[in-house]
């Protein structure tokens, strides 16, 4: 069991945004977190990465909570934010060095992995540049590289498909595939349902801070009583049901 979320209730103030979330992300699975703007996707992610503290419930990563063993918890987790966050004063090379330092990685192995990722995302010629001056798509690639040199148990990727060019999306999906094969769990939030349907093993459908449905595509179809149809259809049906 990689990530276990039990009875998670939480939010920014005393008014909870998330209401009693329960889900698990086992090893070697990619889970898509789906919901409209304001459904609670980002808030869920913020609780898992630990910048918000749950009001009720627990979040366990490989059996460890953040408050119990903060360093172990944090080391098992890598995060690619929706908007790139970079250090304006650090070059690309130094961003990678810093990640290696912060996660106490084996320098040689990590640089090997980094070299691979940098070539894949066509950043290998820009090691001595300030990524803060890159275009948004390139900055996002930097964030991806920095996250995937960490051999984490869980990768969280917030909106990976907006801002990336088609080639980069393909490359990212390949990297996710690789990590999954290694044994990692992946949680990605997205609006691009077609891609999510294709690459995620199961889905969590969020609405108003509650989980409306979760499971594989086949399970979801059964739940909503739909024989055919894709994730879009299920999603719209769910929204219509909520509206009624």
């Amino acid at each position: 069991m990689s990530l276990e979320v039990e009875h998670l209730t939480g939010g920014y103030s005393h008014v909870p945004v998330l209401k009693d979330l329960n889900f698990t992300i086992p090893e070697q699975t990619v889970v898509g977190l789906i919901g409209l703007n304001g459904a609670g996707k980002s808030t869920t992610i913020k609780h898992i990465i630990g910048i918000l503290t749950p009001q009720k419930g627990t979040i366990k990563l490989n059996g460890v909570t953040l408050s119990g063993e903060p360093e172990t918890y944090r080391k098992s987790l890598a995060f690619v934010p929706e908007t790139p966050v970079l250090y304006p004063a650090l070059t690309l090379r130094e961003h990678i060095e810093l990640t290696i330092m912060a996660y106490d990685l084996d320098t040689k192995k990590a640089w090997q992995q980094a070299g691979d990722l940098l070539t894949r995302f066509r950043l290998d010629k820009r090691l001595d540049w300030f990524p803060a001056n890159f275009s948004k798509g390139m900055q996002q690639k930097v964030m991806i590289v920095c996250a995937f040199i960490v051999p984490a148990a869980l990768y969280i990727i917030d909106e990976p498909f907006t801002g990336l060019d088609p080639l980069a999306i393909r490359d990212l999906l390949q990297v996710i595939e690789q990590q999954k094969a290694r044994g990692a769990a992946v949680l990605m939030s997205t609006h691009v349902l077609a891609t999510a349907q294709q690459y995620a093993d199961s889905f969590i459908l969020l609405s108003d801070g509650e989980i409306r449905a979760q499971g594989t595509l086949t399970e979801l179809k059964q739940q909503f009583g739909m024989g055919a149809g894709n994730l879009d259809d299920i999603y719209f049906k769910m929204i219509d049901e909520v509206a009624q």
Partner: peptide, 14 residues
């Protein structure tokens, strides 16, 4: 100075 950088909060560094 790094308070606004989300990643600086995530490092497994005490």
């Amino acid at each position: 100075v790094f308070n606004e950088n989300l990643l600086a909060h995530l490092y497994p560094v005490p």
